[in-house]
Design a binder for these strands. Structure first.
Lengths: 117, 117
DNA sequence: CGTTTATATAAGCGCACGCTTATTCGTGGA
DNA sequence: TCCACGAATAAGCGTGCGCTTATATAAACG
């Protein structure tokens, strides 16, 4: 399942928002989601499975609890995909700061030095 | 239709990538997409409609041609949503540059002064 | 052991969405 | 005026996905 498909689901986006605040047991997530969306425990569990399988979340067992946390890798990919569109809303001067922030100077240097294979 | 649902479609993502390079007539987009995905003209047209209706693309008529271009607003919203996760992969020092790039200093100042309603 | 609690899986159903073919609309030129 | 072309819409179909209820797994505890 593609990253954007995963994020297409409002429930899954909300779960990620909750996990962004820190590691949380499945039960706690389920409680919040049920309160907000009115869906069943299995429904939430299935969304958590999608997040696991697609790499957005990692789990760790602690007794009978499952502690979920964000795995940022796929979100970072989404962020990278957006890069090609930032030119549309990022003013030039501020773009420089973004370049620095994203560590693109090193990449640009490598590109120059490489000169192509 | 939510922004992430729109981006969930591979064809629509590709169309946006094409439009990111500049304004293009429907026919040109259709040709590229048909070559890559092997779908019909109406299928592409329907995707273009979704992009229009969801605010990702704008159109302008020129004779019998329809010239499409990116409207960055929804993409910027997606970018904003990602903000809450950047802490997971943006090192601290570089985060400062990002803050500057995104003009958050003004917002932070407003937050401080406001002190809440 | 049996029971309770936490979470995951199974099975099945309904609907939204993306595709197709057929058709319509609108502009331009002979 | 009629035809050709670019593009959009209509109608219908199949399927993937998210939901439900029911059940399984597995740890804690008496």
């Amino acid at each position: 399942m593609h990253a954007f498909d995963v994020l297409g689901e409002p429930v899954r986006r909300r779960i990620l928002e909750l996990l962004a605040e820190g590691e949380r047991p499945s039960g706690e997530v389920t409680e919040s989601i049920q309160a907000e969306f009115g869906i069943s425990q299995p429904a939430v569990s299935q969304h958590l499975k999608v997040l696991r399988d697609s790499g957005f979340a990692e789990v760790r067992a602690e007794g009978t609890r499952r502690l979920y946390r964000v795995d940022p890798a796929p979100l970072q990919q989404v962020d990278a995909w957006l890069e090609q569109f930032r030119v549309f809303w990022t003013p030039r001067l501020e773009a420089l700061a973004t370049e620095v922030a994203r560590g693109k100077r090193a990449r640009a240097k490598a590109d120059t030095e490489g000169g192509g294979p």
